[in-house]
Amino acid sequence: MNELALLVAATLSAGTPLAIAGLGLLLNERAGVLNLGAEGMLLISAVAGFAAAYHGGSEWLGFAAGAAAGAAVAAVFGWLVVWLNTNQYATGLAVSLFGSGFSAFVGIDYVGRQLGEKTAHAVPVLADVPFLGPALFRQHPMVYVAVALVAAAAFFLYRTRAGLVLRAVGESPQSAHALGYGVRRIRLAAVVTGGALCGVAGAFLSVVYTPLWVEGMVAGRGWIALALTVFATWRPGRILLGAYLFGGVTMLQLHLQAQGVQMPSQFMAMLPYVATVVVLVLISRNPLWIRLNMPASLGKPFFPGA
């Protein structure tokens, strides 16, 4: 029972950076912009967050710096793809390449540094409930913030006028433009907001989760976050589900390995990827369902004068 509770706790923690980054990318994509530069943004914000937490002595300063750095990189990306109409796929990949080099370059002095001592977190009263306490209520606050962010994003997208406009821009930029909305400004705003969220996720990895900075430490999680947006069929709630599924299967396979299960570790390590595909297939079987959610203009440039 206790092991199961700890497995749940580890799953929530592992899923959190994926959920936050995935949510950021989802906002981009809802506005019609696909950002394959996620890996680069996560790396730059990880080093920025680590540096800020190191000098400022506060995790929250780290998150703020991570968000700022993520937003700044996203702004450059957004300017290129939204204003200059460069190809989103190639520009995103170039941002990834740039980000991994740049973060390694500025971060070299932070390799081998350590942040101050971590305090244990516990929600008063609830943390002492048997099973549920250790499973759910002894997490870093950011784990709960991630859930709140997802709820806020769902509310924003489906219950506010601004959210409706954002979705309209992603769905049909021409009509949104005809109605007098500034398609480019809205897209850029979405990209920058998404970048800021990716930044928080990057900072979470380097400041809380690991916590250390070393070149390339994101190790492909940007790609997983991108995959999650597809997995979630562009709905915020399912991002959380996908992130916990991926994190959970990852933790489960490590857990089974430690139990000494008789299976090559390579096949165990494949499980999170295979599970994601299998669940996506199950979700996508109703074509209408997924089509209704995929932003119709995803990845396509918008020319206001055309």
Partner: peptide, 16 residues
């Protein structure tokens, strides 16, 4: 080299 994964593996071992 995958610091987050190293963390997860360590956590998993300690949990057990």
């Amino acid at each position: 080299f995958d610091p987050p994964k190293e963390t997860e593996a360590a956590q998993s071992l300690m949990n057990q």
